[in-house]
Every structure is written in C-alpha cells, then in structure tokens.
Simulated scan of single mutants.
Amino acid sequence: MNELIFQEAYLRNFTESVFKKIGCPDEHAVLAADVLLKSDLRGIDSHGVARLSGYVRLWEKKRINATPDIKIVHETPTTATVDGDAGLGLVVAPFAMKVALEKAEKFGSGWVAVRNSNHFGIAGYHALMAVEKDMIGFAMTNASPLVAPTFTTERLLGTNPMCYGFPAGNYPPVIVDMATSAAANGKLEIAQRKNKPVPDGWVQTSDGQLTTDAHALKSGGSLLPLGSDRDHGSHKGFGLGATVDILSAVLSGANYGPWVPPFVSFIDPLPDLPGAGIGHFFGAMRVDGFRPVDEFKQHMDKWIERFKSAKPISADQPVVIPGEPELEAEVYRRENGIPLVEPVVKDLNELAGKLGVSLLKQQI
C-alpha cells in the first residue's frame, strides 16, 4: 500500500486546526495535537493522526466535551481523583499527570486516578512527562471491551495498555509501553487497511477458534490476552488487563469491564452504565526518594549496557531495550517526515472537507 510523507510541523498544524474546529480552546488543541504527533513520530501509527476522525465522531455524538471543566474531586497529599468532564483524553491525561508530578515533587510520589475521560493516545506520552523530571512514571488506561479473558469468547476487557518509564544517564530512558492484550487493536486496523492477515494468537472467532483474519472482530470475534492461550500464559495477560481496569476505573468511578463505552459509538443513546466515561491511572515517583539520582542513572546505564551486550541468537539481531525502536523512529521521522497510508490520508481529507480545514497535500 502506498504511503505519503508529511513534515511534522505540517501535520501538527492540520491536527490543531481540526481540534479548534470542533471548539477546543487553542491551548487544548495544541496539547491534543502534540500527543497525537508524538505517537506518529514514535512509529505508533495506530494512535496518531489516524485517530482524528474517531475523536470528531465522538464529539458529534456528544461523547466528547470540547471545553471541559477538568478538576480534582477527591484528594490526599499523595493521591487524587480527577474528573475529566468528558473532555479529550489527550487533554485530561496530561492534566492528571501534572497533578501526580506536583504531588511527587512535594511528597516523593503522586498517584492519580481519572474518571469521565476518553481515549488518551499513547501511554508513553504521559509516562515520559515524569521521566523528563528525573522521576519514574506510570500511565495506564482501560478501553472498550474487545478482549476475551482466558477460557471465554465474551469481550470483557479492553486492550488496557500500561507504561513504565525510567530515566537513564548517557542512554535514552527505558520506556515499557505495551497493551495487555496479545496485540493492540490499532495493529488490527493497520492490517485491515493493508488487507493483510494478522499473526497467529492475536484474535479468535466468535466460537473461540484461532484465526489470522484481521476483520474477525467485525463478525463477533475477540482479541486475546497477552499470551494468547492458557498454555502460553494468557492468564497472566488477563491478570495484567484486570489490574489496569481496576486501577483505572473501579478505583476512580469510571466505567469498567464490558461497560466501557466504545471508542466510536453507533449506539445512541448508550445504555445505563455504572460509571463515568473511561478511566486512567497515573503515578510518579522521585528517584531521589530511594537513592541519589546520579547513582540511579549510572546504574541504569550499566543495566542497559549489560543487556545490550547479551549474546544474541543471531548476529544481526541484538537485544532491543524497551523504548529503543520508538526513539529510533522519532529521530528518523523528525528528519525525514511522517508516513501515512493512502486510506488514512483519504479519511483525513474527507474530515477536512467536512470541517472546512485545508486538505492534506503530500510534501515529500
């Protein structure tokens, strides 16, 4: 499938214009665009500007409030619960992470649960906010139910990603950013656009049979937990996904399990739900609450060097430290542009035409 290449600044301006057109304040539009562009720069194409039309459809369904009153509704010195007022998760999540960082700066650690939010982009964006302040960052979110727990065909959990960020010294930070399902739904969407099968162990049919059909979810199938099946540890993926769901939603007052609203809902109105919106959970810990920062970074560097020097199975494939591929993509794409597949460009230009935004034109 052909790809078109766009400069970061050009896509950033386009994305900001779309958010402003749906009524977002300038500050929110700039922040939301930054979260999406960070995803595209880091090579996580499923969570970048390709999601723009989804956010607009949610706004059209009145599921997203373009001018939210985001506020703390419960608080202790080291913890808080934030209500996002149905705002863009791309805006609500950084607000909540800043609260966690402020608490960590004063008391050593900060923990924030969020309710009444929406899709927040990549978890890595928010964990990196802590890393930039020499803190260890945690970010996670629940999501609409697409994943069937071990031994069932019923969708009860989202892909429920979690991210852990650790600062280093001479090396880039270690960023562990992953879905708790065998694959993120966005990877299925990419395979669908390219009309390609997905690997074994990602999805199952409506009757529980493994399949490589990227469209299986449209016919009642489901994503599988990390581990794919019981013999390969899917109960562990189920446990991780459950942990994210409980911390993000049961703790905050958001919707959980099968009641999490879909990213783009064609159910109008939504049925009665036990909570408000979707939920997130954030944490920040000061490294110097445990040992001097310089010492920690020195040993993080040593940790990275030892793992990088591990004897490889194949000489042309060394150990990859978590976060390395994303950083390499970011360096390359800042210099050479961001690729978008033709169906995404077509979708964005249809959106631009509807909102009265200048159409995307290939630059490179």
Rank of each mutant, 00 (worst) to 15 (best):
R230P: 00
D200Y: 14
T212E: 04
V112P: 10
K236W: 03
E16Y: 04
A284R: 05
I321L: 10
K361E: 15
H280F: 04
L156H: 05
R155V: 02
L41T: 01
S358M: 11
P269V: 05
P68E: 06
L4C: 02
T153A: 06
L52Q: 00
R334A: 00
A130L: 07
P199G: 03
N170W: 07
I304G: 03
V319L: 08
Q362E: 15
K106D: 05
A80S: 08
K38F: 01
P173H: 05
G353P: 07
G221R: 07
K311I: 07
W259E: 07
G43W: 01
G165H: 08
N13P: 02
A104H: 06
H299D: 14
K346S: 11
P325V: 05
G323Y: 08
G279D: 13
D34F: 03
N13Q: 15
F290S: 10
K308Q: 14
S314K: 14
W202R: 08
K71W: 03
E324T: 15
H215V: 00
V49R: 00
V114T: 09
F95C: 10
K103G: 10
L359I: 03
N142H: 09
F266R: 08
F6N: 04
E8Y: 12
R230Y: 13
F266Q: 11
A139N: 13
L52N: 00
K103Q: 12
T152E: 14
A216Q: 03
I5A: 01
E8C: 03
R230G: 00
L223W: 02
K218P: 01
S228H: 09
G84K: 12
G158E: 04
E295Y: 14
K196G: 00
F266T: 09
Q298L: 12
A143P: 05
D301M: 00
A216P: 09
D347S: 13
L240P: 02
N116M: 09
N255C: 13
M140F: 12
G220I: 01
Q317K: 15
G84N: 07
G233C: 04
G323Q: 06
P161K: 11
E60L: 11
E350Q: 13
H119D: 05
K61E: 13
G169C: 13
A179E: 03
S117F: 07
V147W: 11
V112M: 05
L88R: 06
G137T: 07
G233P: 02
Y10L: 04
D294W: 11
M97V: 11
D316Q: 13
G121I: 00
G279M: 06
T76Y: 12
A168W: 10
R291N: 06
V260I: 13
R333D: 03
F238K: 04
L223Y: 03
G54N: 10
T159N: 10
Y332I: 10
T81M: 12
M97P: 08
R230W: 09
V244T: 11
V250S: 05
L41Q: 01
N118L: 02
D83M: 12
H280Y: 02
E105D: 15
V131P: 08
S314N: 12
M300H: 14
I122S: 01
P145F: 14
L327P: 01
G257C: 05
E102Y: 01
H215K: 07
V319H: 12
M129I: 02
G353E: 15
F14D: 04
F107W: 14
E330K: 11
N336I: 01
P161W: 12
G158F: 04
E75S: 12
E295M: 10
A276Q: 15
D272E: 15
Q209W: 02
N195C: 05
V174F: 07
I338D: 01
N116I: 09
G239S: 12
